[in-house]
């Protein structure tokens, strides 16, 4: 489902003496449907960079990033948007939303974007929020004022609202307590069971061992190591 071939990346800082910083070379990665692959490596090794390239958030300098039959490294913006709407989900570490929009609408939005009718989308959002132990009295409020853990759970609910065939999870269990961590792990297992291809970054070793089928150490993709 996800196929990364010979991807490289460098950052050029035009305003800081045009410094060129190569950050990744010859990255290769395959994820089949129903499989979960963990990206591991020290902080700064390029886990999030690779994940962001797969999402189309960072431009790959060379190589191919195939999600289904779309090459993210070459695709037009509207093809990537289409892909993100129907195929590729992303749970980032931070929640970024329009201020003053209710939590329920934030979670339902990915469903509305795919043409699900309002009632069905809200019903699904309510189920997710209830499973993730967000108290019902908060649903009508904007998540911008929530605690860190609550925001992360809202973000997870939003990321899992639509059944994406491919998902990217950036530390989904980072600031959660044991009970909520269990809920999230079960959601990941359920997503795998329905056939989603998942790439995850987990600093939580036990969580990683439990849901991931293999580990890819991105340190192997740093340009120095490759050279």
């Amino acid at each position: 489902m996800i196929n990364v071939e010979n991807v490289s990346k460098s950052f050029t800082l035009h305003n800081q003496g045009a410094a060129v910083i190569p950050v990744m070379a010859e990255a290769n990665l395959q994820v089949a449907a129903g499989e979960c692959v963990a990206l591991v490596g020290a902080s700064g090794a390029g886990k999030s960079t690779l994940m962001r390239m797969i999402y189309g958030n960072y431009l790959a300098a060379s190589g191919r990033i195939m999600i289904g039959d779309v090459d993210v490294a070459q695709a037009e913006p509207r093809e990537i948007l289409q892909l993100r709407r129907h195929v590729l989900g992303y749970v980032s570490q931070f929640l970024r939303v329009v201020p003053r929009v209710s939590t329920l609408d934030v979670v339902a939005e990915p469903l509305l974007a795919t043409g699900t009718d309002r009632d069905a989308a809200h019903a699904r959002a309510k189920t997710l929020l209830a499973n993730l132990n967000i108290p019902e009295r908060l649903w009508a409020l904007s998540p911008t004022t929530f605690s860190g853990g609550e925001q992360q759970r809202v973000n997870i609910a939003r990321g899992f609202a639509y059944d994406y065939p491919a998902m990217l999870l950036d530390e989904p269990t980072a600031s959660l307590d044991a009970a909520n961590r269990e809920v999230v792990l079960q959601m990941i297992e359920a997503a795998k069971a329905r056939g989603a291809a998942i790439i995850g970054i987990f600093h939580d070793d036990a969580a990683r061992a439990r849901v991931c089928d293999k580990e890819i150490d991105v340190t192997g993709f740093t340009p120095q190591a490759a050279a």
Binding site: N57, Y58, L59, P77, I80, L81
Partner: peptide, 9 residues
């Protein structure tokens, strides 16, 4: 480009 790509990279 894509909005988030232009702003983030």
């Amino acid at each position: 480009g894509l909005t988030d790509q232009v702003l983030d990279d």
